[in-house]
Design a protein around this nucleic acid. Structure first.
Lengths: 141, 141
DNA sequence: CTTACTGCAAAGGATTTGCAGACTA
DNA sequence: TAGTCTGCAAATCCTTTGCAGTAAG
């Protein structure tokens, strides 16, 4: 039941130019418990006073760079049309999303770890996947 | 306005007011091989001359009604920020999406049919899911 | 220094909404 | 007929982009 709350500062990804604002986005994302929208990231940067005079567009640009380098996953959850971004950590994560309150409940493990998947076209090379479960959380059901 | 010779391949969902434009959206979606965007649906309606003077907003409104009644699934695929809509048929379907050409390749079956899933919170009541596989198709890999 | 990154504001694209008139049940 | 649905256009919301100044290596 015990949980580490040691916040290791992850190392800056190689090959990406480090700037104050990218660093801020990076920190927020790496320490985030769950996927965040560009606005949420932006707001957190302001709150944590990681810098002043940031532009939301810079957040988007940073996210784009990270995504292009395969460092973050972008997804759009059902019932909400704002994209959310998550830093790709060792163990990737999936969530159950409450259709009523939109709360995210993390899954214990990736259900695909034990499943072998095939497409009709055997020649399709799978490199990743996205899974989202929908339903109602304890409070809402 | 008179009825056109529309092929009746599925019955109109109960409890939803039937109108010419909703019927058009319904037909397009039910006969679609794969998920379509609001614009694609709109375009098809024009092409098939299912009616004149349609408004794209009407398509959106129809889709919203269908979605609220749990008749269509809306999703936003990676690498594209336009939502696509699919009519919920008996056997639900999942796709593998090519990261390069964005082609959709249908999966043989739902990988979750044989998997038991759990969330950390045992009290979460799962009612549905969304799965998307990403990778490269035969031509692009 | 040189080039890439940023802030700002304006543009873009997708989706939604207000309103008066049209249509379904 | 009553109340819902629609067309139209304007409004929103999220995200992207052009440009000129600024900062990282």
């Amino acid at each position: 039941m015990s949980e580490k709350n040691i916040k290791e500062s992850a190392e800056w990804p190689e090959g990406i130019k480090k700037t104050r604002q990218r660093e801020a986005v990076f920190q927020i994302l790496v320490n985030a418990e769950e996927p965040l929208s560009a606005h949420e990231i932006y707001r957190q940067i302001e709150q944590q006073e990681l810098g002043d005079g940031y532009a939301i567009s810079t957040v988007y640009r940073a996210l784009t760079v990270f995504e292009e380098n395969d460092l973050v996953v972008k997804s759009t959850l059902m019932g909400d049309d704002t994209a959310v971004y998550a830093w790709k950590k060792e163990a990737h994560k999936h969530y159950a999303i409450c259709l009523k309150c939109h709360k995210l409940v993390p899954l214990q493990s990736c259900p695909f770890e034990h499943v072998d998947m095939h497409t009709k076209d055997e020649d399709f090379q799978i490199t990743g996947h996205k899974i989202e479960l929908y339903g109602y959380c304890k409070q809402c059901k």
